[in-house]
Design a protein around this nucleic acid. Sequence first.
DNA 1: GTATCTGCAAAGGTTTTGCACTCCT
DNA 2: AGGAGTGCAAAACCTTTGCAGATAC
Lengths: 148, 148
Amino acid sequence: MKDIMENIKEELKKSGYKLTIQRKAIIEVFSEQNAVHLSPEEIYDCVRDKYPNIGLATVYRTLQLFEELGILYKLNFDDGCSRYELNTGEEGHQHHHLICLSCGSVQEVNIDLLESLESEIEKTKEFKIVDHNLKFFGYCKDCKDKSQ
Amino acid sequence: MKDIMENIKEELKKSGYKLTIQRKAIIEVFSEQNAVHLSPEEIYDCVRDKYPNIGLATVYRTLQLFEELGILYKLNFDDGCSRYELNTGEEGHQHHHLICLSCGSVQEVNIDLLESLESEIEKTKEFKIVDHNLKFFGYCKDCKDKSQ
DNA sequence: GTATCTGCAAAGGTTTTGCACTCCT
DNA sequence: AGGAGTGCAAAACCTTTGCAGATAC
């Protein structure tokens, strides 16, 4: 946790930005929260528990900055808002999402078998791949069980 | 083309909807346009060439309806609006998108190697998969060439 | 004929922006 | 001290909704 904060402070300083209380607080929310895919509004609510004066605009500006710096990863689950998760730093953001069409829950999978597909695309399409984003839609265990 | 329209008319009637001039016009835009990933605004502009009185709300309502019926497929390239393409009817929507981080262009790939990954997930996660969505981010041939 | 559909305008929700003030270094 | 960062409110988006009038079947 201390380490994460130090790394981010370095990252910010390198690009000429400052580590303010607000930015620190937003990072803390991601570290403490077990909900992984947080929306700006959710982050805003969590941060206000500790720093009631923070503005929603600051949250948006911080999220945008952190995404540019690669500190956060922006996700889109088509639920009317963007969502963010901490970038673990592993190359290529190697995990995918399973989205339940019935209850809307999102779980993660860590299997990665895209290397061969990527190298094929790089060859045939002459497209240099730096990242990917894979979502599966279907029905989670709970919803399958309920419908029986 | 005639066939497409007949099929859609059937599809609509089956669910108690009517094939209006506006709905027909929107389908025609998708059939005639070579741009594959159209936004509501772009569709609105195209349709107005022929039917200047159509309202933007009608476009949105039609796109929503067609997506529910599986006639269109909704895409998200994080460019501030949703985009749509004709659903070719092939199972599982078997094509992926290559999004250029430099120029924003989007091209399609038709390779599909996700079957084994899907069956592994279905087994280990007990999640019934019905569709997937795979995007690759990187640099297209043109942008790679220019940067050299 | 009647339920569905449309166009318009207004409302809704998320995200961005302008500006004066504050704060970090 | 000085630029970067903040909070507030207003604006800018895209998208949805209510309603009276029009239309497909």
